[in-house]
Structure formats: C-alpha cells, structure tokens
C-alpha cells in the first residue's frame, strides 16, 4: 500500500509538471486555461506553505521554551513578537499605520543592520582569504577585487583625474567583459543543472515529496 501510494504521488507530480511545462511551448486555449488554473493553485499552496512554515517556527520555539533549552529567552522574545504583530495586524489591519510603523522602525532597521554586518563579514573574509587559501585563484580574486574597488568609488585625491578614469574603465572592462562572460557561462551550467534536476523529478527518479 505504501509503495502504491508513492506511485500515486509520483504520477500526480509528473502530470502537473508536464501540464505547466507544455504551457511554455504550446499555445492552445484549452491548455492555457488549465495551466493558469494550476499556477493559481500553486500560488495558493505557496501562501499556505508560508503559514505552515510560521506554524512550524512557532512550535519549535515553544518546545524550546518548554524544555528550557539553551537560548530559550530569545525564543520567548521571538514568540512574543510574532504573537503581538499577528494580533496587531488582525485587529488593526495589515495596512494600519501601527503595522507599517513596526515594519518601518523595527524590521527595516534590523535588516539594514544585518546588511551592514554583511559588509564587515565580507571585508574580514577577504582580509583572511590569503591566509586560509593560497593558490592562483585567490591571487586573481584579490587583484580583481582591488581593481574594481579602485574603479568604483571616489578617491581622496585626484578623484576625477586620468588615473581614476583609467581605473574606472578597467573596472568596467573587468566587470562587463570578464565577470559577465564568466557569469554567463556559470548561468548556462546552472541552467543545465536545474533542467536535469527538474527532468529527474518529471521522470520520477527523484521524489523530494517523500513516499
């Protein structure tokens, strides 16, 4: 029975995958309608999955609080903030100035701060890179970083001089020729890999949806 159920899920996944896929190549009214309906179901399911994820998040942190595990005060703060925001949004509406203020004065600064931390972490990572990994790729990486940085922003002196302009051109050449070309190649490879992954699911070889 278990094996049979797995085949049913696989058949459903393959069928819906083929329906959506053909919509990119075959433009028929009937098929377009089916595809649109399936896509709408997918959108609804994604939103429902977001709710599931939030429920999972809540349950994990509640269990952590209950077991008094390490870091449970932070879990308590998280659960409290979640509940408060949910209640405010339910009572006052998601477009109320209160909710917008929560986003504007709490979430947005916190995320901006994390982005600032990203700058520090990246800088530190580059500073330590040669100590951790000493090969030709790393040397090329560092030289490229240096040239691009020099050609991106202003200088303390002679900011609009010939050398600064030259560095700007070098930076544009590096980023728009070498980096863009390499990125295109990587993207082609990524596209092939993603296609293979999708095909394995459509052929039933990979079943990430479980049994």
């Amino acid at each position: 029975m278990r094996g049979g159920l797995g085949l049913v899920w696989a058949a459903i996944a393959i069928a819906f995958g083929l329906i959506v896929l053909q919509g990119y190549f075959i433009d028929l009214e009937v098929l377009r309608g089916v595809r649109t309906m399936v896509l709408q179901w997918a959108v609804v399911l994604a939103a429902a999955a977001l709710l599931l994820g939030v429920a999972n998040l809540l349950a994990v942190h509640l269990s952590k609080i209950g077991a008094q595990e390490k870091g449970w005060p932070y879990s308590a703060v998280l659960v409290g903030a979640l509940v408060v925001t949910l209640l405010v949004g339910l009572f006052f509406g998601e477009e109320s100035p209160l909710v917008l203020s929560v986003f504007q004065y709490i979430q947005q600064p916190v995320e901006s701060t994390l982005a600032g931390l990203l700058a520090i972490s990246l800088t530190l990572g580059i500073v330590r890179l040669l100590s951790r990994r000493r090969d030709m790729r790393t040397y090329i990486f560092l030289i490229t970083v240096f040239i691009v940085l020099l050609g991106t922003g202003p200088w303390l002196i002679a900011s609009n001089g010939g050398l600064h302009q030259l560095m700007g051109e070098a930076r544009a050449w590096l980023s728009q020729v070498w980096a863009a070309g390499a990125a295109r190649g990587l993207l082609l490879g990524v596209a092939l890999g993603a296609t293979a992954t999708g095909l394995r699911i459509l052929l039933g070889a990979d079943r990430p949806y479980g049994d």
Binding site: T123, V145, F146, L150
Partner: peptide
Amino acid sequence: VEVLVVLGAVGG
C-alpha cells in the same frame, strides 16, 4: 576596504 584588503594580502 581597499587598505584592509592590501594589508590582509600582505599579512597572508
């Protein structure tokens, strides 16, 4: 950042 990168490379 440029100065730090250079110092880091020299240190490495």
